[in-house]
Design a protein around this nucleic acid. Structure first.
Lengths: 337, 337
DNA sequence: AGTCGCAGGTAAAGCGCTTAACTCCGAGGT
DNA sequence: ACCTCGGAGTTAAGCGCTTTACCTGCGACT
């Protein structure tokens, strides 16, 4: 392994000078800079991140903690992660994925090892024990999602209000008046506090009330089967429905196939609009789904950005709320007759 | 931060003793062990991984390198990764995901930093430049997949022969005689060397020839759209087909929906059998797919195991080939009449 | 009785880098 | 001519561990 000492010797300078050059922490004359750079090139020098981390007490590693047990690692999570990894790399950080439990125990375990400079927390709950752990240990962190009371916590999240408003407005303007929301299943104890479900359902109730429409909300967990069952309940109890909004992406696929099974034409008889989805999943349905695209890419990047600003001591990034944007597909049309 | 020195002082021993105890590298009397453990508990000591890594020249971090550009991070990849992460953690290693290019440039870049002890390589190609990079730099590594010539490389892979045999045998014994394989698209330059596609197609040609059946292979990339198009070509050019085997998981969804669009009953008129798939994707189709389950969990674990054995200097794990196993669903039945 | 081996412990030299604190020198101000 | 000050380097003290070499008893073997 070629070390800084080798480079310094070859360039005829002290190793401190090499370090200053590398980190750009002190000026260096063009002449010495050239000599050092040449030496590095000739020797094929690569700085050792571990030594650097020990000396500077910064590892330049960021962990993305996501609750493996409670949430499957699906396409949306993948999108968050890859966007975040990309941004991190651009800022010369590494991103590692940490599957942790929702209770914060594993998180505390991992933090103790001094391996990471900061944490991006995903799938945040309204009251999240993990936030407490991070606070206690003094770890810098940013949330993708929001707790209920966010005392100045760095966070980015979906703008649920704007998204739901856009969705309802879209359907309303097409002429739909009998809407149903297939929401998350808040009765499930693992999710009763899950931000996206709580917030989007609340937004829906508010918006639909403003439009003066009936409020019908049917719970469903995020699987095709659950979606099918929810759709069947809707057909049975609310046959007048002309448009269904669906919160969960995999449930949406079930909703569409249940409607087709029951002989309903989509979108001729019933329109289906998915509230938060990535294109890859939308393409899996036939016809391809009309949906509001989860801003996974943006949020992944912003989350990392918010964290890195703290780490680098820059101005904090103010909280960002990004709406999902409408992406046309083949499952929404005007109501029948 | 509480360091080993603090613990040693409190326990009245030297810091070397603490280290020996922690790493179990030298015997310690029960009495001192107790004193040290008490001190650690009282002080809430957690060993610093970075310092340890620097001193021991082992970071206990493993990277899983997967080609982000060429392969989307889908459900199968997620399964590999989570299984691997789980196993790694059990062995007190960390697993980080590295999206890298197929050419090996980024990989070399990252390896130089001395951040990882070893690499698990995913989506291996028959001739893979990344393998060269790993060899050159002397990094321990294991492959999930295989190169064409594997001179003693540690690897685990799907047993394509056994899987394809099982698939064809299953269909044959139900009475099917007119089969088609919708394979990967080897004409795509990014994939002409992609092991799973090459190997499964070769296996198919061999097996079907042994059964004395017609060999019909239709290429398709891995998307619902491509699958739909491939299925349409099959219906047009080979209307006598009674069963379709599909290589790619997302393409399978397209195949099923194209058949239904064309008024074919699945499995009444045509059976569809997916060759490599995870349950999550199979559930997205209606009816749920009959498929051979990709042994992602097993391979993820075995891949890590193979690597860690090298790192820990244990006996090498012999190459493992694991077949995909049949999982019944609603898309395979006897041929019509 | 002599000595060999080993269990149990210590001291100290790094691992490859960062970062004060310090030196040296020439330009500017007065 | 004197002092000051900032730019460009250097020296050296760590960062928190691992690990080698070394020391000391003590029981066992001859």
């Amino acid at each position: 392994m070629v070390t800084m000492r080798d480079v310094a010797e070859r360039a005829g300078v002290s190793i401190a000078t090499v370090s200053f050059l590398l980190n750009d922490t002190k000026p260096v004359t063009p002449a010495t800079r050239a000599r050092i750079e040449e030496a590095m090139l000739e020797l094929g020098y690569r700085r050792n991140m571990v030594a650097r981390a020990l000396a500077s007490r910064r590892t330049r590693i960021i962990a993305m903690a996501y609750p493996a047990l409670e949430h499957r690692f699906g396409m949306s999570t993948a999108e968050f992660f890859t966007a975040a990894a990309e941004r991190a790399r651009a800022k010369e950080y590494h991103l590692v994925l940490w599957p942790v439990g929702n209770d914060g125990v594993e998180l505390r375990e991992l933090l103790g090892q001094g391996l990471v400079d900061g944490v991006v927390l995903m799938e945040v709950q309204l009251a999240d024990p993990r936030v407490e752990v991070l606070r206690e240990t003094g770890t810098p962190f940013a949330l993708i999602g929001r707790t209920a009371e966010l005392g100045g916590l760095a966070h980015v999240d979906i703008d649920f209000d704007a998204t739901v408003e856009a969705a309802v407005e879209h359907l309303y303007s097409l002429g739909h008046r009998e809407l149903v929301l297939i929401s998350g299943d808040l009765a499930d104890p693992r999710f009763h506090d899950y931000g996206p479900w709580v917030r989007s359902e609340a937004a829906y109730r508010r918006v639909v009330a403003e439009y003066g429409l009936h409020i019908v909300v049917e719970p469903s967990s995020d699987s095709p089967r659950a979606g099918r069952e929810a759709a069947e309940r809707v057909l049975q109890h609310h046959p007048e429905t002309t448009a269904i909004l669906v919160m969960n992406e995999y449930a949406t696929l079930g909703v569409v196939s249940a409607l087709k099974r029951q002989g309903r034409d989509v979108p001729g008889d019933v329109s289906v609009l998915s509230l938060f989805m990535v294109p890859e999943v939308a393409a899996l349905s036939d016809p391809e789904l009309t949906y509001l695209r989860t801003p996974g890419h943006e949020l992944g990047q912003l989350g990392i950005e918010a964290l890195i600003r703290q780490l680098d001591g820059a101005d904090p990034l103010p909280p960002q709320l990004v709406p999902a944007t409408l992406s046309p597909g083949g499952t929404v049309g005007p109501p029948p007759r």
